[in-house]
């Protein structure tokens, strides 16, 4: 029984896109997250309800993202926020989407909270988990 479960675990770990690294990074877990975590399923419900805006914090220019997501990266936070000035206001509830690694997502969430946003959550698992949960994707605009 234990061995069968172990074999199935190894198989599912190898196949799933949102698998965790084999060894946990203590920094991720010791980090006091600036905003609560929500699962991709909950995030998709928020997306479909239409009240929340999505903020993609992944660095660089990956090919796809959540449709309508705003690009606010950790290393160009001020410039990105300024670019979205007309569309992203502190009254908007936000869902932070990263690459599954929580440090950058939490840092951006904390800085947004410092700038006056009050309803901010972080989606766990990043975009791979969003895709695995059946969330829609759209091409991401090239970052300047």
């Amino acid at each position: 029984m234990l061995a069968v479960a172990l074999a199935l675990t190894a198989l599912s770990w190898a196949l799933r896109p949102d698998r965790l690294p084999l060894v946990a990074d203590p920094a991720v877990y010791e980090l006091e997250l600036a905003a609560p975590l929500v699962t991709p399923t909950v995030a998709r419900d928020l997306y479909e309800a239409g009240d929340h805006l999505f903020v993609d914090v992944r660095p660089g220019t990956p090919a796809a993202t959540v449709p309508g997501a705003f690009l606010v990266r950790e290393d160009s936070f001020d410039d990105d926020l300024l670019r979205q000035f007309d569309f992203l206001t502190p009254a908007d509830p936000l869902v932070i989407v990263g690459d599954g690694e929580l440090t950058a997502a939490s840092n951006v969430a904390g800085r947004l909270l410092d700038r006056g946003w009050h309803d901010v959550v972080i989606m766990s698992g990043g975009l791979a988990a969003w895709e695995a949960a059946g969330g829609p994707l759209a091409p991401r605009e090239a970052a300047p």
Binding site: L20, L37, T39, S124, G125, A129
Partner: peptide, 12 residues
């Protein structure tokens, strides 16, 4: 099974 990261946080 669907949310291993969130479950890892719960375990931690």
């Amino acid at each position: 099974i669907q949310h291993p990261q969130a479950f890892a946080v719960d375990i931690h």
